[in-house]
């Protein structure tokens, strides 16, 4: 049954995203991993929606609506995280360990 298959895929994506979130150190890669994780969670919920197909609907519409809401909220959170990451990166000299100038090589003392 395809619902189970996609549910298991969602479970795998959740694990992969969580791993990336914890192991990668670059802020943008962490944000990406967090979105992978989110996609996995939505897919698990989508499998539940598909199993709930009834009354002539291809999938239970209530979880679908919640997933839709979730995607938009996740996007809003992502934009905020990205704005924070960019702001920290562009802050001159304030970020600990950051090179003071943009033109210096990354390994400058």
């Amino acid at each position: 049954m395809s619902a189970i298959l996609y549910g298991l895929l969602g479970a795998a994506l959740t694990g992969i995203g969580l791993f990336g979130l914890l192991v990668r150190t670059e802020p943008l890669l962490r944000i990406l991993a967090f979105n992978l994780l989110g996609g996995g969670v939505f897919l698990v919920f989508g499998a539940v929606a598909r199993r709930g197909a009834a009354a002539g609907f291809a999938a239970d519409p209530v979880p679908q609506a919640i997933i839709l809401t979730g995607i938009v909220v996740a996007f809003a959170a992502t934009t905020l995280a990205v704005a924070l990451a960019v702001r920290i990166a562009e802050e001159p000299g304030d970020a600990p360990g950051a090179a003071p100038g943009a033109d210096q090589p990354p390994d400058a003392p």
């Binding site: 960019v86 990166a89 090179a99």
Partner: peptide, 8 residues
């Protein structure tokens, strides 16, 4: 935007 900057 972040490429030229070194991020902590």
């Amino acid at each position: 935007r972040m490429r030229p900057h070194r991020v902590a």
